[in-house]
Design a protein around this nucleic acid. Structure first.
Length: 621
DNA sequence: CCCCCCCC
C-alpha cells in the first residue's frame, strides 16, 4: 500500500509552523491512567504519531474517543489530522492535540511501520505562535433557545447588549485598578488543557449557552447563581458564577460571543448533571476576568456536540445527560399538563425523532420551545444536554440547561437529512419509546407471554412491573362487577345506601341524592401459555363489555337476561392488554395484583408487523 | 456553594 506520510511535518509543527492536514501513521495508542484525585469518567488517550522520519506523542481530544471504541485507531493506521492544536509545554516542548481526524488507511491494511522514524528531539523549536490556526471550521447558526430564557425565542441573539459595561480597556472583572496585565492576552491556552493544578491561565472561548439566574436555599445556605457553557477548538467546559460573581457577570455575557477568560477555580465536574465533555468545571472567583474579544474569530466553534445515536440510548443509564440529533419524523400537538408538586400549568410537545440507526425515540419539548416548534417538512433537531428517562422504555426530555438547534448547519445534520429524504422515511423503524398508537408495538413495551410473566417473577419487586400481552378473555365475574360510586367527579369511592333515597360517601363525608355506577371487573385472560386474573376499572371494563357503566347498571336492574348476555357476548374476545403487576397484601396475605391499564382490539396489521419484527430478531440471534 | 427541570 503506497501511503504518503507528511515527512518532516512533526518537526515543523513542533517549531510552530502551520501545516494543513498532515498525514501521519499512528504507531501506538495508550489510555492514560486518570489522576488519582479526579473521579474522572472520561478516558484520555495518548498516541504516538510518526511522519516516517520522526515520531512524537500527541493527545486525542475526548470527542474522538468513540473512534478508539470503534476500533478505528489500531496501531499502524494512517490518519490525516483535519484539525488540531499545538500546545506549548515547559522546555519549549509542544504537544499536539488532535481534534478531528480522518482514517486514510486502516492499520490492518497498512500492515506495519512505515519508514524508520526516530524520536523527535526535545527542546528545539522557537516558534512564537502557541496555537495553530485550525483548518476549516463550521460556524453553525446560533442556537435557538425558546423555552428557558426569559427573553423568549432566540436567546442566543436576543440578550440586550453588554450595555457598555466593559471599561475602556475592554476589561471587566478583577479587583483594583486596571493594569497592563488585563489587556487581552496574546496567548490563550486550550480549554482542554485546564486543570485544577494551575491557577494562572487564560482561555479564549465562545459562550455557547447561558442559564438564567437561579436562587437556591438549602441546609448549606442560600444564594444565587447562573452557569454557562464555554467552548473553543480543543473542547468545552461549564462555568458557574455564584452570588457576587453572578451579579457582576450575568448581564455582561452574551451567548455566541467570544471572551478571554482568566483565573477561575477549577474543580472536578459531576458528570451526572451535564453533557459537557470535561473532567473539570469552572467556578468564577474574585480574580476572574472576562474580556470580550472584539474581532470575530471564526476558528472558535459555536458549539461542540458529542452525539449518541438513538440506537445507543437503549444501552445507556436512565438520567444520563447527552447530545442527540435526529430527523423529526412526527410531532404531537401541544398539550397542557399540571405539575404534581407545584400545580403549575406547563405546555409540552412530543417529537418522534429518527436517525440512521433506524431507531425512533420520543423527545419532549417544554414551554415556549414546545409552542414555537414547527414540525412540518421534517426538520433536523439537535439537542445538547437532553435527559434520558426510562419512561416507556427510553425517552428524552429537553431541560432548561439544554441547547436546541433546528436544522443546524453541521455535517451530521446534512447527512441525516439526506439519509431521511432518500431512505430513512421509508424505513420500518422501531421506537425505543413506547408507542401510544397501534398495538403498542414499541420495542420496549415489554411484550410477554403469561408464562414469561410468571417465570420472570414480574411484580415481585418494590416497584410495579408493566407488560404487554395478547390474550383472550375466557371468564368474567358478573357478581360485584360494578358498584355504586360517589357521584362527585374524581371521587369514585363506594357509597352506602342510606335507605332513604340518599347515599353516603365516606371519603367526601357527605350524603348525595344519587350515585353513579362504576365498573370493577375481574377478568380471566388466557394466552397459549397460561392464564391471569386481572382487574379492569371503568374505561377498560367498558371497552371489554362494549357498554357504558350506567347503561349496564340499568340493565342489571331492569333486564337480567340482557345483562347476562353482555358478559356472554364479551367472552372469548381477544385484545392487546397493557398490564401493571405488583405484589400487594390483603389481610396480611401477599398476592399478586394484576391491573389492566389499557385494552385494545387487535390491529391485524400492527400485530403482523410485530410478528415480522420478532421473526427478524429471532433470525438474527 | 447548584445539580430543580416538570406529565403520562
Amino acid at each position: 500500500m503506497s501511503t504518503q506520510l507528511s515527512s518532516g511535518a512533526l518537526e515543523a509543527i513542533n517549531d510552530g509552523q502551520q501545516i494543513d492536514k498532515p498525514v501521519f501513521q499512528l504507531l501506538a495508542l495508550k489510555k492514560l491512567n486518570p489522576a488519582a484525585s479526579t473521579n474522572t469518567t472520561v478516558d484520555r488517550y495518548r498516541i504516538m504519531l510518526s511522519d516516517g522520519v520522526h515520531n512524537n506523542t500527541a493527545m486525542l481530544a475526548v470527542q474522538l474517543n468513540q473512534m478508539v471504541a470503534d476500533g478505528q485507531l489500531e496501531p499502524n493506521t494512517v490518519i490525516c489530522l483535519d484539525r488540531y492544536v499545538c500546545n506549548k509545554l515547559a522546555g519549549n516542548r509542544r504537544v499536539v492535540i488532535i481534534l478531528e481526524l480522518t482514517v486514510v488507511a486502516p492499520g490492518s491494511q497498512v500492515g506495519g511501520k512505515i519508514g524508520n522514524p526516530i524520536a523527535l528531539p526535545l527542546g528545539g523549536g522557537g516558534g512564537s505562535n502557541g496555537q495553530q490556526a485550525p483548518a476549516l471550521q463550521h460556524t453553525p447558526q446560533q442556537p435557538m433557545r425558546a423555552g428557558a430564557s426569559p427573553m423568549g425565542v432566540a436567546k442566543a441573539n436576543s440578550f440586550p447588549g453588554a450595555g457598555g459595561s466593559f471599561n475602556k480597556q475592554g476589561n471587566y472583572g478583577g479587583a483594583g485598578p486596571s493594569t497592563g496585565m488585563m489587556s487581552p492576552p496574546k496567548q490563550a491556552q486550550p480549554i482542554s488543557s485546564l486543570t485544577p493544578y494551575q491557577n494562572r491561565w487564560t482561555i479564549k472561548a465562545r459562550v455557547s449557552n447561558k442559564s438564567s439566574v437561579r436562587t437556591w436555599s438549602n441546609s448549606r445556605g442560600e444564594g444565587k447563581l447562573f452557569s454557562m457553557d464555554l467552548c473553543d477548538q480543543s473542547g468545552e467546559i461549564r462555568a458557574t458564577a455564584f452570588k457576587e460573581q453572578c451579579d457582576k457577570f450575568y448581564d455582561l455575557i452574551e451567548v455566541g460571543k467570544v471572551y478571554f477568560i482568566s483565573r477561575g477555580t477549577l474543580k472536578t465536574a459531576n458528570r451526572q448533571y451535564t453533557s459537557i465533555t470535561n473532567d473539570y468545571e469552572m467556578t468564577f472567583n474574585n480574580d476572574t476576568t472576562m474580556v470580550p474579544c472584539e474581532e470575530e474569530d471564526d476558528s472558535i466553534p459555536t458549539m461542540q456536540f458529542d452525539f449518541r445515536t438513538i440506537g445507543q440510548l437503549e444501552d445507556m443509564n436512565k438520567d444520563a445527560i447527552l447530545d442527540v440529533i435526529g430527523v423529526v419524523k412526527s410531532a404531537s400537538d401541544v398539550t397542557t399538563i399540571t405539575t404534581k408538586t407545584t400545580n403549575r400549568e406547563l405546555t409540552k410537545r412530543e417529537l418522534h425523532i429518527i436517525d440512521d440507526s433506524s431507531k425512533v425515540v420520543t423527545l419532549t419539548l417544554w414551554g415556549n420551545e414546545a409552542e414555537k416548534f414547527d414540525g412540518t417538512s421534517n426538520p433536523v433537531i439537535a439537542v445538547k444536554g437532553a435527559r434520558l428517562s426510562d419512561f416507556g422504555g427510553r425517552s428524552l426530555s429537553v431541560l432548561m440547561s439544554s441547547t436546541l438547534m433546528i436544522n443546524p448547519d453541521i455535517p451530521r445534520a446534512h447527512h441525516l437529512k439526506g439519509w431521511y429524504d432518500t431512505v430513512g422515511h421509508t424505513q420500518d423503524a422501531q421506537s425505543i419509546s413506547e408507542q401510544r398508537m397501534g398495538a403498542g408495538a414499541g420495542a420496549n413495551s415489554n411484550w410477554l407471554t403469561l408464562e414469561e410473566v410468571y417465570s420472570q417473577n414480574l411484580g415481585q419487586g418494590e416497584k410495579p412491573d408493566y407488560f404487554t400481552t395478547k390474550g383472550t378473555i375466557i371468564f368474567m365475574r358478573k357478581e360485584n362487577s360494578m358498584y355504586m360510586a360517589c357521584p362527585s367527579s374524581e371521587c369514585n369511592k363506594k357509597v352506602s345506601d342510606n335507605g332513604d333515597g340518599s347515599y353516603h360517601c365516606e371519603k367526601c363525608g357527605k350524603d348525595y341524592p344519587d350515585f353513579q355506577y362504576r365498573l370493577l371487573l375481574s377478568a380471566n385472560v388466557a394466552d397459549p401459555t397460561d392464564t391471569q386474573w386481572t382487574t379492569c376499572f371503568q374505561e377498560t371494563a367498558e371497552t371489554i363489555l362494549g357498554m357504558k357503566a350506567d347503561e349496564l347498571g340499568r340493565l342489571k336492574l331492569e333486564d337480567e337476561q340482557a345483562f347476562n348476555h353482555v358478559f356472554e357476548k364479551a367472552s372469548f374476545e381477544s385484545y392487546v392488554f397493557r398490564m401493571r403487576i405488583k405484589m400487594e397484601s390483603y389481610n396480611e396475605e401477599a398476592r399478586l395484583k394484576c391491573t389492566c391499564m389499557s385494552v385494545k382490539p387487535i390491529d391485524v396489521k400492527e400485530q403482523s408487523k410485530k410478528l415480522i419484527m420478532d421473526i427478524r430478531t429471532l433470525a438474527a440471534a
